[in-house]
């Protein structure tokens, strides 16, 4: 009877003891802070479901995900997010996750409208800017910053859309190496766009993509079925 009671006490105490022990690990001053640990855990949790993470080069990762079906969910790590850390990485995942369902729409226009909503636009950009102008000085600055950040996301979505079209051309028979090279170019451009500090620098990058897109289409057109042209 007494040994039974002791066993019950031990079994009951184990979770409590383990719980106390687990909570004491984050208190060290030399390691990452509790906030950083929480972010790292959140990032690890998001990345657990991603495919194509073992490839060392960007081209290899793009090649790996060429055959992924459109599911409306983020099932790979976007290259742009790969280059970011902590909260920036989580924000990046949030953006890419939010626009994934948009690929399930059939036309460019529907996809763009979907992305505008996902990003947070509730009106046209001139209208939203006019709204910012009605605010007091401090809020006006914040409002314009938010609007420009959202426009940057929309621009990146348009670049992303070109990658998706390239995937479509791949399905239609365009050469794999040209598809991978173009998607890699778009991925690198998105990172350059994030680093661009001025409106003009951003517009210059977009102009370069336009030129590259025209070249790309000329390269692959002959490999597409007749009705696609």
């Amino acid at each position: 009877m007494r040994s039974g009671l002791t066993l019950v006490l031990i079994v009951g105490l184990v979770p409590f003891v383990l719980g106390v022990g687990g909570g004491g690990g984050g208190g060290g001053s030399s390691g990452p802070s509790a906030e950083e640990l929480a972010l790292q855990n959140a990032i690890a949790s998001r990345e657990a479901g991603f495919g194509c993470q073992n490839q060392s080069s960007m081209a290899e990762r793009i090649l790996c995900r060429l055959g992924f079906p459109v599911t409306g969910q983020l099932d790979y790590q976007p290259e742009e997010c790969r280059a970011k850390v902590l909260q920036g990485k989580l924000d990046c995942y949030d953006f890419y996750e939010s626009v994934q369902p948009c690929w399930l729409n059939e036309t460019d226009g529907e996809r763009l409208a979907c992305a505008r909503t996902a990003i947070g636009f509730s009106a046209s950009i001139p209208t939203e800017r006019a709204r910012c102008e009605t605010l007091n000085t401090a809020n006006k600055v914040l409002c314009k910053q938010k609007l420009r950040a959202n426009v940057d996301k929309l621009v990146k979505f348009r670049l992303y859309q070109l990658s998706q079209k390239a995937l479509y051309f791949h399905q239609e028979g365009a050469p794999q190496n040209q598809i991978v090279a173009f998607i890699q170019y778009i991925e690198e451009t998105k990172q350059s766009y994030s680093a661009a500090g001025t409106k003009q620098a951003k517009i210059d990058l977009i102009r370069q993509v336009q030129t590259k897109w025209r070249e790309f289409v000329e390269q692959i057109k002959d490999s597409l079925p007749e009705e696609t042209e």
Binding site: D108, I125, P126, L147, V155, R158, K199, I206, W213
Partner: peptide, 13 residues
């Protein structure tokens, strides 16, 4: 490419 609209969005913002 749809990128003319992207440039216009930047101009507007």
């Amino acid at each position: 490419d749809g990128l003319e609209d992207a440039i216009q969005d930047l101009e507007d913002a």
